[in-house]
Design a protein around this nucleic acid. Sequence first.
DNA 1: GTGAAAGCGCTAACAC
DNA 2: GTGTTAGCGCTTTCAC
Lengths: 333, 333
Amino acid sequence: MTTIRDVAARAGVSVATVSRVLNGSGYVGKDTEIRVKKAIQELNYRPNTVARSLANRKTGTIAVILPDIMNPFFSELARAVEDTARDGGFTVIFCNSDDLGTREQHYIEVLRQKYIDGIIFASNSMGEDDIVYMNENRIPIVVLDRAPGKSGCTVIRSQNAAGAVMAVRHLMETGCRKIAHIAGPGELITAQERLRGYRKAVKGFTWFDESLIVPGHFSIRGGERAVSGLLERHPDVDGIFAGNDLMAIGALKALQRMGRKIPRDISLCGFDGVEMSEWTEPELTTIAQPIYEMGRKAATHLIARIRGKAVKEDILELDVRLVERNSTRRRKN
Amino acid sequence: MTTIRDVAARAGVSVATVSRVLNGSGYVGKDTEIRVKKAIQELNYRPNTVARSLANRKTGTIAVILPDIMNPFFSELARAVEDTARDGGFTVIFCNSDDLGTREQHYIEVLRQKYIDGIIFASNSMGEDDIVYMNENRIPIVVLDRAPGKSGCTVIRSQNAAGAVMAVRHLMETGCRKIAHIAGPGELITAQERLRGYRKAVKGFTWFDESLIVPGHFSIRGGERAVSGLLERHPDVDGIFAGNDLMAIGALKALQRMGRKIPRDISLCGFDGVEMSEWTEPELTTIAQPIYEMGRKAATHLIARIRGKAVKEDILELDVRLVERNSTRRRKN
DNA sequence: GTGAAAGCGCTAACAC
DNA sequence: GTGTTAGCGCTTTCAC
């Protein structure tokens, strides 16, 4: 293991000088710089990041806490975060919380001890007090999908309610007369907002009934389960807006097994726009969030904060868009 | 930020003693231990992991280098690794290589500088020399899906060739008379082995022809593309063995769009057993690898090596199994 | 049993 | 411009 001292010796200078050329800080004579670089080259010297971190309290590492990397939404998000982090010279640690509070606490503690430079919270049960804790410890954070909070941190969200309205409107415009909603878990703000959008869009229609809202789990199984009960109560449902794509895919499967043709008998619209929504047959109409973009923005903002750039502690609300595919009927022109 | 010195002061002992109780190393009087613990408690002291790492050259961090976290095979693998690492008190960094050699080199260098404790290589273009390099730097590694190598490191693999044979046999047993293979990229050992298995299984059958082997890309698109050319050349194909599940799903989509009924007209068998293979309609028959298990084993072995346990530098070859679902016809009993 | 002190490898005042 | 040196916070000999 060659150290900065070895390089200094070989170049006939002090460690301070080597450190200077390494970091491009302070003044270094042109010729000495060359000597040092040569020595570095010859010794194939690589600075020890840990020592560096200890000295200047920066680890060049950020973390992303998410419910489950196997969920395609989060793997796309993670991918975006890593790509962006890499470009910025950062490395990323990932943590699967399964939305377990205890696990999140565990990670927060471990990451703090590791002098992590910043954290992206995409895990939903992350509480207000956690944010306060991070602030106290001066660890920059970016939070996804949270209510416009008071606490000082960037929040990245998308237009869940507006998207839900778009979904329902689209279903109506393509001929649906009775539209159900498979809702995500009530604790999650995204689920709440999408439900709110659904309610807003169906308000006033005589066919609407509370029992058209069925609870799901933001998972394939959740969508599958929701469907059977729904069709028993409302055999005449001809449109379903699922709270996310996984549930929509589950619903699609279940409906197909029950012999319903999609979209002939029932139209189906998801939410999220995960890549997988193109892989079903028929491909899924969905309200797409700019997932990769969200991850990129989250990482960019976090890094800006880490670098001490004055970032207004703001809410970034990204647009969603309707992606018309074949699980809903074509608009009549 | 409270340090070990603060704790020492408060407990009226030296930092060495505090360190001892922290690590449970050396002798510490029962009563002093209690005093120290009390001080730790009261100050809510948490040791600084970076300083610790510098002192003892262990970071408690491992890395996993994989092609793309968005690929469901790798996200399941990553999940397994993280779960296992967490249990062992480790934290995990993930790196998307896109199978780019330059990117892999970059990561290897960065990770080395970070004093990472060990690396799991699931990125396929990782070369023999990289392994040698890691050995030289005494960084324990575990490699996935590589040929039984000479170099000293654990290799985790599954029975690709045998699995391919199972796939083809299954297709034949369920009535297929002409079976094609959509192969993965030739550089990848897994693709090579599965192709070898296919060849072995179809050898001697008069219907076999080299043009029944079509190249794909281990991606959905790869499967989609492969199908059209194949059916032009061989309209009478009635069975397809795809080199992985993604390609099988792509093939399924393409076939369904072309109006072919699966499995009535054509049977389809994939490889990998990613969770997603249950999400299609019909659900995919596939040769399942124990993906989670592979990740778990990889992490377990790596950690054992890190801890200096004498691990025989061995090859772990895991079993695959046929998962019969509805993209192939039922066996006639 | 416990403490003093020398590192681990690097950065950043401060002095020259 | 360059060198000296005191940390960063912890571990670990080696004395006592």
